[in-house]
Design a protein around this nucleic acid. Structure first.
Lengths: 348, 348
DNA sequence: CTGAAAGCGCTTACAG
DNA sequence: CTGAAAGCGCTTACAG
């Protein structure tokens, strides 16, 4: 905050801490602090004449509002928290971008934090970040500890659980059914004539959405009277590399599938590229399907068959929901199913 | 902030605004607020007995510190600003991750914002975000408006310009010379025997680092007595798709190069994949080189020849520098050259 | 349309 | 080791 000594740094004016305050602005404009404050927050409520004088003072002094004072005194902070498992995943990045594009336009700042797929860390992070008195919370997923749910519901602000649809959301819920999506992709593969369909998942104890896609996969197999041809799980976090590694493990397993449904596109792309290196024909020898619809999968040849999830849109809707609720506390919209779409490439 | 009505929401206790405050904690523990405050900030300075009582009260009441009150009263906010062009680029994401991994461990929160490669927006963002009184600023690049430089240097807090090394940094500077790196890659290509080396860049009016790589490219060509075989620039932001598009444009141009140096790996990967679709042999018909060393490039076949930039490390060092300066105002370390490395794949 | 008073929830000196 | 006072820079009612 750099308002340590009285020897207020170079370039500073006014105030014991070297900061230009609203008091300075008001003084220079010859009005009360209140009027200056009002002129900045709702210009329409102040006479033209004073407004011009105040604006002039703001520019001349280089005044910047101290958000800490504002946030402490008022009932909102214009801060929204976004809590996701990983910063490094395109999926969460897209949600963050969607939310930021909506929120920053309205003057809101995002405070993000990542849980590394640990529910315990998530609770810890919630507690910590709630100290920032956010006006709203966006959190990935619907699986939380009781402590987290308690913290969120007691926060008194709009909470959006994003990406996945759940049975008992804390408040607002925007996403899709990963189980249904996993089922649909598996049905697609079966309809394509693949009989021995395998699954390469992610750590089921951490990545619950990948787990639900797996459940959808078994749902579809069961309905079709088939059994999993091969099942394996990559360690979390997944990567192109681990996708390639999982394919090598599959090849060495001795088991044979004619299609492999990968829990996400990183795994699928990694597997696809490894197939090429190993001389495995896709989809001839082995079909590959992914999940999410990342750009890279659509640029590969063969193009990756995958499930497109509208992640950026989820981020936008989450942010819009928070703004709507803030503007009107009676606003309700408990659940938005954004759906998904099978993207048919050539890989399966 | 949800402290609207007196009808303090469910689950709330105490305080006119429904929040559990330090006063409540102190009261319950039977100590003065000051003592409670001290016990939380520096437990060692409070007697064991009181500390235990205060901790008990904190847990019983579910007290969470109000960062706005703390930030307003004290000289630091434990907020660090990270300003980058894009959220969607892996490059900036890596810097953000590196910084966050260091900062969150120390209890600092990141406040990020993106400029979309506009220097005017960057200045606007700086002004806005400085209202959050950050304890430090990390900003991508060394190209800023005079206004931005003024804002940053007057902020009085440590400022790290990251990713690129500049002549006159505002304060601390962590990065590498993109011009030297561009030159080295071009020298590498020439040494490999490629004679007609072309360049596919990014928007030179926005992406200044890509521009400097281009300058390095011309430096190397000049030194070798050669001329650019082909030069084009992709619109900003770049993508795999635009890389593919640029390759198609190149093929249609009628010009012929035997190697194409792409300003970043997204363009290079896109171009590489398009080569496959078009039946262009890499590196036989055309060699492709990139910049950054993204994971995907190293998984493709042929592996992408590129320049590895330590982006995660840059984020870490930037964060560590801020913490070091905060811990000791006399700490100085104006410039850290993190270097780069030629990653030799099979694509060039 | 404009303003004087009180207060948001903490921490910083300063005493004891 | 512990505490009473003052204040951080704003905004919220409430008057005029």
């Amino acid at each position: 905050m750099a308002r340590r000594s009285k020897s207020s740094g170079p370039g500073r004016s006014r105030s014991s801490k070297g900061q230009v305050t609203l008091r300075d602005v008001a003084q220079r404009a010859g009005v009360a602090m209140m009027t200056a404050s009002r002129a900045l927050r709702s210009p329409a409520t102040v006479s033209e004449k004073l407004r011009v004088r105040i604006d002039e003072a703001v520019h001349a002094l280089g005044y910047v509002q101290n958000r800490f004072a504002g946030g402490l005194a008022s009932e909102h902070t214009e801060l929204v928290t976004v809590i996701v498992p990983l910063l490094s995943s395109r999926v969460f990045m897209d949600i963050l971008r969607g939310a930021d594009d909506v929120l920053s336009r309205q003057g809101y700042q995002i405070l993000f934090s990542n849980t590394f797929y640990s529910l315990e860390q998530e609770e810890e992070i919630c507690r910590r970040i709630l100290g920032w008195q956010p006006d709203g919370v966006i959190i990935a997923g619907v699986d939380h500890t009781d402590g987290t749910r308690e913290l969120l519901s007691r926060s008194g602000v709009p909470v959006v659980e994003a990406l996945e649809l759940g049975e008992h959301p804390v408040d607002i819920n925007v996403g899709l059914s990963h189980r249904a999506a996993g089922q649909r992709m598996t049905e697609y593969l079966l309809a394509k004539g693949y009989r021995r369909v395998g699954f390469i998942g992610a750590d089921p104890a951490r990545d619950f959405r990948a787990l639900r896609r797996f459940q959808g996969y078994t749902d579809a197999l069961e309905a079709a009277g088939r059994r999993p041809a091969y099942v394996a799980a990559a360690p979390s976090p997944t990567s192109y590399r681990s996708g390639a590694e999982m394919l090598r493990i599959y090849l060495e397993s001795g088991k044979r599938a004619d299609a492999l449904f990968c829990a996400n596109d990183e795994l699928a792309v990694g597997a696809l590229l490894e197939c090429r290196r190993q001389g495995v024909q896709v989809p001839g020898d082995l079909a590959i399907a992914g999940f999410n619809g990342l750009e890279i999968g659509q640029e590969l040849f063969p193009r990756l068959t995958t499930v497109l999830t509208p992640r950026y849109r989820i981020g936008q809707i989450a942010a819009e929901s928070i703004l709507a609720r803030l503007a009107d506390p009676t606003w309700t919209c408990k659940r938005v199913d954004v759906g998904f779409e099978i993207l048919e490439g050539e890989s399966a």
